[in-house]
């Protein structure tokens, strides 16, 4: 019994840390710079495609992973430039990028729908060798995910409190003011989107190596999953300030993966998981509303965007 619960928690912890990268990226775009970037659904498989191709080519898996994250950040630059330079509404920019990236991902993978990494050496092999745990154990997965999550947390926690990082956050709060105070809001949005998509592509590269293959369809559902994590993190932890926001996003991803894993272990058919996601998000969004209703507070009509 305890072993099973321990296994469940360990697995959700690992998944929460990796998907937490996506949640943090989406927190950055959706909540901090106020740029609802749907393009993550394309940059996630893009990261996977890039890392798979490079590893098959014989690149060191660490360098291939970093390259995938960098490639993903270029996707973010493209998405945000559609908005800032060509004045296309943000939601449409994301949709344009999702469609386009489907074809690009196929091209990157040499017109194949998937690439196997089963006979290649990945960062998981490298780390397993390095610390002397046998490859395939959950401890290795957790270690890899933990290292990435901790580095991401500290770097972003520092960056968002620098002069540039502050301007970035302020852009999401009051664009007019930020321009009036001499910071280029378009540049801020481009920087924010590139970081977010870099993180999402990094997650894609890690997941792809963990599962042993890259697939053109592996991005499907990532957007909803990331949003669910952001919304759960917001609802449960109600973060204020940079540090708590970053932690809430990761914790939200953990809670979300825990629900999904438990549901699966309880014997729910995988086809029902999307319904569970839908219910979870609805509940998380409605709780604050009900709380206010009970206190007879006035609740404004919901935003028609995000």
């Amino acid at each position: 019994m305890f072993e099973m619960i321990g296994g469940l928690l360990a697995f959700s912890f690992y998944e929460g840390l990796v998907f937490g990268l996506i949640a943090v990226g989406m927190y950055l775009t959706f909540r901090m710079i106020n740029f609802p970037d749907l393009g993550v659904e394309g940059s996630f498989p893009f990261g996977g495609a890039v890392v798979a191709v490079l590893i098959v080519k014989g690149w060191n898996p660490f360098i291939a992973t970093i390259a995938a994250a960098f490639a993903g950040s270029l996707v973010g630059v493209a998405t945000s430039m559609l908005n800032t330079k060509l004045r296309i509404p943000a939601l449409l920019c994301g949709i344009i990028m999702i469609v386009s990236l489907w074809s690009i991902n196929l091209r990157v993978m040499g017109n194949r729908a998937n690439i196997s990494l089963l006979r290649e050496e990945t960062i998981f092999h490298k780390i397993a060798d390095l610390v002397g745990i046998s490859y395939g154990r959950i401890e290795v997965d957790i270690l890899v995910a933990l290292v990435l999550a901790v580095i991401t947390f500290f770097v972003l926690n520092w960056f968002l409190c620098t002069q540039i990082g502050l301007a970035l956050r302020a852009t999401g709060d009051n664009e007019q003011m930020v321009r009036g105070l001499g910071s280029d809001t378009e540049m801020n949005i481009v920087i924010g989107c590139s970081i977010a998509n870099g993180l999402v592509a990094l997650a894609g590269a890690v997941i792809c190596q963990a599962q042993g293959f890259s697939d053109v369809g592996m991005g499907i559902g990532i957007l909803v999953m990331g949003l669910a994590s952001v919304i759960l993190g917001d609802a449960i932890f109600r973060p204020k300030g940079v540090t708590s926001m970053l932690l809430a996003a990761t914790a939200g991803a953990f809670v979300y993966r825990l629900f999904i894993t438990v549901a699966l272990r309880m014997g729910m058919p995988p086809g029902d998981l999307k319904l569970i996601t839908g219910l979870l998000v609805t509940i998380a969004l409605v709780i604050p509303f009900i709380r206010k209703k009970i206190r007879h507070e006035w609740v404004p009509p919901a935003s028609r965007l995000f």
Partner: peptide, 30 residues
Amino acid sequence: QVGTASKMTIEENLAMAYLRGKKRGLKAAS
């Protein structure tokens, strides 16, 4: 509400304003 950022603190607002006309870099904002 146009001249100030409501979700940010007084300190963060002033730190933004303090850098008007200066180059923003990777130093701590405050």
